[in-house]
Design a protein around this nucleic acid. Structure first.
Lengths: 359, 359
DNA sequence: ATGAAAGCGCTAACAC
DNA sequence: GTGTTAGCGCTTTCAT
């Protein structure tokens, strides 16, 4: 009964189908089967066809462990993430997994949960499994010590980077993203721009704050007050916005270090009777859909394009596996996504913006 | 130089260290090395020690492909998710990965992206890699057709379930969760409870709505109006809240099908001058931290405990791999997380709740 | 054009 | 207590 699944066929032993079974059914030797299946050597068309249909009929799937054993390649890579919660690593992983899948690579998922012990455990596991390469991802863009030295396989750091400049890292151009945000605010006519962001000890916060300050300086302007460092939370956004309202009513734009902060700012501004974007334009960072779109009004935001970044990391890893390593720090541009929170104030349409919930 | 990493040692060939290298360095045969490393057979303590330190010195890691080849077991499982964006599958995966890691299992990550073709591709890949089992996860709790029939390895469905009742599925007890939400609202003295939720064709929406209605009926009450089916979005929450305000000012609680919806409802109520929880108590679903905590006030919500659910699924899979299958549909209880949005209205503290952003 | 056989790294059965 | 060897499933010479 050729149409049936292998495991349903009467007489099926439960044992996986091997190349031997195929050889027997096709009436040839295993060597011939191997050639037929891999399109190597020279075979009569008829023989090749006979083998292929036998394999088909048995539902034969080559045992990759055996292939790995004599090729030395497993067509497998490890992905180690230090990020438990996954907000940043998920798109990275998905992008990488997609790019690797196209190269017939399977991905081992390793969640190190910010624990160096777990990390080393996973590293050993992956080496034992003879993965062809490793991608290391994490929640922060700050450089971190290499996961290992003198490893026999290539490693690519994605989002995070390695402190060793010879290592291959792919990182978002956060400074460039901040530049785009500031440029956009200037372009829509804003001049008194404040900056609210995360903790000062957080790499992304300082990079983005510095970049924003520098860009304004290039335009002959200064930030409206020092950057407000706090937490990556809506609550901090609300709190900081109130500080701003208390101290300086002249601000006509706020560039925020994250969408969560921006959303808190939007809520606080609205509660205080300030209109966004008419009175104050708002730009976030991350382009986190649920925040940027849930915000009233929808938020202009800097997108780090993490999925693309993951894809790039995977491509660099594949190249390195094939002997074409690209050592060093590779930056990946950010993209500014413009939404209503920075709509040009030259054409205000107050009545339309104010009741988004109406049915 | 014993302290050095294997790959840095002078004379290192780049070739992975095998059991042969260890045998040679220890001056014994490969069989002896195998016994020493796996604690089998009987060896002199001195010999065992000599082997272990040789292995240590060379940084030996057994080639898992070889182990797999003659044990037939790969200590590997596949995790197929149909969920691209990952909101639900991430905690599931993390829980499962954690539980499997404890069993020395590595996890292949497969993102099928809602594409049946990709799903079957991954299934073939996993079978070819001879995984010991498969976990299938997805974004919706609705039953889906089995991923394959007569498969040679156990499959466990997590969050989603299989339409075949003989398959092993682990699903959240959404109805139970809805019961807890309603019970809690009744316990804090609410009697006119409305329900706003996602699309009517969405399994979770109807299950939760039905369960809420039933529970109220058991208490001799009725839902305040028919369930409002719409979208899983904040915008719909806002819109539905306005419908509610227009039609029926007497509602003293809203049970929402998701935290996103609840958050939209909270915003709309506040904008309309209604106080939460004083005038209207609010319960969400999902306990999605960023929504539940970002909401003003923080949201009481039903937590499906997806990480635990993933862990349970992994444990069931491990058991099935060891020959102790647990066919059928296993439900996993939900947990109600109580926050300010349902604080008992008998002790109102209006002044404190209204300015959470104050510094 | 096809078959036979060695070998990838490891484990286990058996010999000594 | 330790060494030798067959064999897991597959690929790849090398004969024929």
């Amino acid at each position: 009964m050729p149409g049936r699944k292998a495991a349903e066929r009467p007489g099926n032993t439960g044992r996986p189908v091997t190349i031997n079974d195929v050889a027997q059914l096709a009436g040839v030797s295993v060597g011939t089967v191997s050639k037929a299946l891999n399109g190597r050597g020279s075979l009569r068309a008829e023989t090749r066809h006979r083998v292929l249909s036998a394999a088909e009929q048995l539902g034969f799937q080559p045992n990759r462990a055996a292939v790995a054993l004599n090729s030395g390649r497993t067509y497998t890579v490890g992905m180690i993430t230090t990020d438990t919660i996954g907000r940043f690593s998920i798109p990275l992983m998905m992008g990488a997994e997609d790019a690797l899948g196209a190269g017939e690579m399977s991905v081992f998922l390793c969640d190190a949960r910010d624990d160096p012990i777990r990390e080393q455990y996973y590293l050993r596991t992956l080496l034992s499994r003879r993965v062809d390469g490793i991608i290391v991802t994490g929640r922060r863009t700050q450089a971190r010590p290499p996961i290992g030295t003198g490893l026999p396989i290539p490693v690519v750091y994605a989002f995070i980077s390695s402190t060793d400049p010879r290592d291959c890292s792919v990182v978002p151009d956060e400074a460039g993203g901040a530049h785009k945000a500031v440029d956009h605010l200037l372009a829509v006519g804003r001049r008194r721009i404040a900056h609210i962001t995360g903790p000062e000890h957080h790499h992304s916060a300082t990079v983005r704050a510095t970049a924003a300050t520098d860009r304004l300086a290039e335009a002959g302007l200064r930030l409206a007050g020092a950057p407000l460092f706090g937490e990556w939370s809506e609550a901090w956004g609300r709190q900081a916005a109130q500080l701003l309202l208390g101290a300086n009513a002249e601000v006509d734009a706020v560039f925020c270090g994250s969408d969560q902060i921006a959303r808190g700012v939007a809520d606080a501004l609205r509660a205080a009777g300030r209109r966004v974007p008419d009175d104050v334009a708002l730009v976030g960072f991350d382009n986190w859909d649920v925040m940027a779109l849930g915000c009233q009004p929808p938020l202009t935001s800097v997108d780090m394009e993490l999925e693309k970044l993951g894809r790039t990391a995977a491509d660099l890893l594949l190249a390195a596996i094939n002997g074409e390593a690209s050592p060093g720090r590779h930056t990946h541009p950010c993209r500014l996504v413009i939404r209503d929170s920075t709509a040009a104030s030259s054409t205000p349409a107050p009545a339309l913006d104010s009741a988004p919930g109406g049915s």
